[in-house]
Design a protein around this nucleic acid. Structure first.
Length: 772
DNA sequence: TACCAGAGGAG
DNA sequence: AAATCCTCTGGTA
């Protein structure tokens, strides 16, 4: 048994060699493939294939020209398959060929060579990797940082922590202290020695996967710089090749050949929705436990003049970074193994890929199997054009504002995927020539072929059917380990199925089709609107709805079983009229809910669990004081049904804030820097806070989340905004936190119940309590 | 006060 | 480098 961990190509004697990095029962294996050459397809102008073939034959660096038949928009076409001697010549040859008189188009010239091999060979990365018991290690570094942000030119690495899933835990450092007693600490001579020890350990312990937390942007590039300083070859690769930093779009990826490096930071940003993505926050999200943390600005001081307690705490912190990263990796990697297997992308790629890239990888593999010509990547000009053409999305119902009791929720199961499948929505079936009258119609005026199944609907259906099979197995399975394995499998399939609609509308997609994306959403609107129209005839009223869901209340004085009977006949009626594969489901019953505006509401379920949507409580750019107060008010209204307590909660919190005793952790606001720092026309509080912090040596760039507090000193809000690291406890603007945080968050809710702002601020009388 | 840029959520 | 719809803030004129 073996599992494919990595693949690349190299050049030997000017010939290409594909290398496949396997983990096997015995150890590892690097298989080399010599007989695979890059190629591209060329579509000739109508009837000119022979002329074109002749023209291409005259060009140098071409190994072979051969006629073949491929599918283009579900039609068989004659094309030329051009084999090239080396991938490095592909771009130039493509440019030459596409200018030839008889050439219509060049295809598949831009598929990276190693990926091309994986596609054509049908190899599945990470197959059986669970059975092979992969050796997974994590590492983290602490760096000397007297100027806050370390500079790899001068600031050495002072600790490297390491943990693997075979029991080894280490912190390598080169300073000790009297009485130091931590069994995992190994004190070596200097920075060079700890780096060498790290490299040696990865190799000796036959590590298969290296994980880090932000290793792409910090640990690996820093380690690389420091290794170069010491003239150490950072030969971590399974073939002893050095670590390589690769460009991946806007970001960098640290690549170790044959021992894939998986950076958990981008993985966590994709999977979790939390206010911040520090290792501590993510660790808490996964395990529910607090992780040790120490102040970054204290590190250099501790290193220079350590006390026993401080140094021990520093070492413990360092160790916990590696063990936490390992724990996170062990938790999240299984999903990525599965995504890797489904999309047949290397784990190095798939762990860093976005939804669009994953869908595309999957489609390229499936296209190869069906001999479908892969569409080219759009040029920047086309991408720009696509970005300018927008289309309409889901339908949102204006909510009936206020409190409602006994709410029923219905929603369409996988609305967009089920529309794609049941209406056969695909670029190749769009406005086909064969079934104009009898086709699947879209409200947009386009129609979709009924005779031939489209490429994307077919594959989407495949994903969903596999998911159904797996879910059946999952329900029958007793062994918790196997259950978890199956659950991860179905999650991965769901993830990919749900990405298909977005892919149609993604301007950089090869299979982009605005008509398809538009048809999907238009049909979605049609079905939800038709559903809403017949609601009254079953004795219900619509409280709210968004895209694929409707919240209903009973309106004709029915009770208990009678309500459920009506709900059942409502469902039956809707479902009898839906196309096969689409289904409206009863999703839940909520004794009470409060609806504020579109996309902002809260309901409580029978178990007393509060479900809050869109409100400040759910947003990272609001302070905890406001979020917690809002949550308390919602609890009082929905759970305890004691609205008069709400005013007291708010008044008490206002007093607390005035006292100046709210801890900073409840005052911080998190906002992401979404643009390049220089691109801002309007600099909001987070940007101005970041800029001030940058003057003090902190680094900020696009993608970072700024955690700031509105302090006492300054004129405007932005002026008062300071990154939390530079704020003293108690230094906060009470006026701002009362009037711009707590009050707006709670007033919005109370106003939806009919209170006025003046009443709530004690200026008026509380007479509008009746009604609940 | 009206408008905008910017952000982050829902589905 | 998945889509659109929507609310809300802080700054500006």
């Amino acid at each position: 048994m073996k599992t494919l961990l990595d693949a690349d190509y190299t050049t030997r004697d000017d010939k290409t060699v594909i290398r496949l990095f396997y983990k096997t029962d015995e150890g590892r294996e690097i298989k080399e493939i010599y007989d695979f050459q890059p190629y591209m397809y060329v579509l000739p102008k109508e009837g000119e294939i022979d002329k074109l073939s002749e023209e291409i034959g005259k060009i140098s660096n071409i190994k072979n020209v051969e006629k073949t038949r491929m599918l283009e928009m579900e039609q068989e076409v004659d094309v030329l398959r051009i084999t090239v001697n080396h991938p490095r010549n592909v771009p130039d040859l493509r440019a030459i060929i596409r200018e030839l008189e008889n050439c219509e188009e060049v295809r598949e010239a831009h598929i990276p060579f190693a990926e091309r091999y994986l596609t054509d060979s049908g190899l599945v990365p990470m197959e059986n990797c669970e059975k092979l018991n992969l050796r997974i290690a994590s590492f983290d570094m602490e760096v000397y940082n007297p100027d806050r942000e370390p500079d790899s030119e001068k600031d050495p690495i002072i600790m490297i922590s390491y943990a693997d899933n075979h029991g080894l835990k280490k912190v390598w450092t080169y300073k000790t202290i009297e009485g130091l007693d931590l069994d995992y600490v190994e004190v070596l001579g200097d920075e060079k020695e700890i780096i060498e020890k790290f490299i040696e350990t990865i190799k000796k312990r036959e590590i298969d996967i290296i994980t880090t937390y932000n290793g792409d942007n910090f640990d690996f590039p820093y380690l690389k710089d420091r290794s170069e300083k010491h003239k150490i070859k950072l030969s971590l690769g399974a073939d002893n090749s050095p670590l390589r930093m690769e460009r991946r779009g806007m970001n960098m990826g640290a690549r170790v050949k044959g021992r894939p490096h998986v950076d958990m930071y981008p993985v966590c940003r994709q999977i979790f929705n939390i206010p911040r993505y520090t290792l501590e926050d993510v660790y808490q999200e996964i395990t529910g436990e607090e992780k040790k943390d120490i102040q970054v600005n204290a590190m250099a001081g501790i290193w220079d003049n350590p006390t026993f307690e401080e140094y021990t705490a520093f070492l413990e912190y360092s160790m916990s970074d590696a063990t936490a990263t390992l724990e996170i990796a062990l938790e999240l990697l299984p999903l990525h193994y599965e995504i890797s297997r489904i999309t047949r992308e290397l784990i190095y790629q798939s762990s860093r890929a976005g939804s669009g890239q994953r869908v595309e990888s999957l489609l390229i593999k499936k296209a190869f199997e069906k001999k479908i010509l892969v569409p080219n990547r759009p040029s920047d000009r086309i991408v720009n054009k696509r970005q300018r053409t927008t289309y309409s999305g889901g339908y949102v119902v204006e909510p009936k504002k206020g409190i409602h009791d006994n709410i029923l929720l219905f929603d369409f199961r996988s609305l967009y995927p089920s529309i794609i499948i049941s209406h056969n929505i695909d670029p190749s079936t769009l406005d086909c020539n064969c079934c104009q009258k009898d086709a699947y119609m879209s409200p947009t005026g386009h129609y979709f072929c009924k005779k031939k199944k489209g490429f994307i609907p077919e594959n989407l259906e495949g994903l969903l059917q596999r998911r159904i099979t797996i879910k059946k197995k999952l329900n029958a399975e007793k062994d918790p380990r196997k259950k978890r394995f199956l659950d991860v499998k179905q999650q991965a399939l769901k993830l990919l199925a749900n990405s298909m609609y977005g892919y149609f509308g993604f301007p950089r997609a090869r299979w982009y089709s605005r008509e398809c994306a538009e048809a999907i959403t238009a049909l979605g609107r049609k079905y939800i609107q038709e559903t809403i129209e017949i609601v009254p005839s079953f004795g219900f009223g619509v409280i709210y709805g968004d895209t694929d869901s409707v919240y209903l209340i009973e309106t004709e004085g029915l009770e208990g079983d009678e309500v459920m009977e009506h709900a059942k006949s409502f469902l039956k009626k809707i479902n009898s009229e839906l196309p096969e594969g689409m289904e409206l489901e009863f999703e839940g019953f909520y004794p009470r809910g409060i609806f504020i505006t579109k996309k902002r509401y809260a309901v409580i379920d029978r178990k007393g669990k509060l479900i809050i949507k869109g409100l400040e409580t759910r947003r990272r750019d609001w302070a905890n004081v406001a979020k917690n107060t809002q949550k308390k008010v919602l609890n009082v209204l929905l759970r305890d049904k004691t609205p008069d307590k709400a005013a007291k909660i708010v008044k008490d919190m206002v007093q607390e804030i005035k006292k100046g005793e709210i801890p900073l952790s409840d005052l911080t606001i998190n906002t992401q820097i979404t643009k390049d720092m220089g691109e801002y026309k309007n600099e909001g509080p987070h940007i101005q806070a970041a800029k001030k912090a940058m003057k003090k040596g902190m680094e900020f760039k696009q993608g970072n989340i700024v955690t700031y507090v509105i302090t006492k000193k300054g004129s405007s809000i932005s002026d008062k905004a300071k990154v939390v690291d530079f704020v003293e406890e108690g230094d906060y603007d009470t006026y701002y936190y009362i009037n711009n945080q707590v009050l707006p968050a709670v007033l919005r809710i109370l106003e939806a119940l009919g209170y006025t702002e003046d009443e709530l601020k004690g200026k008026g009388k509380q007479t509008t309590l009746e009604g609940f």
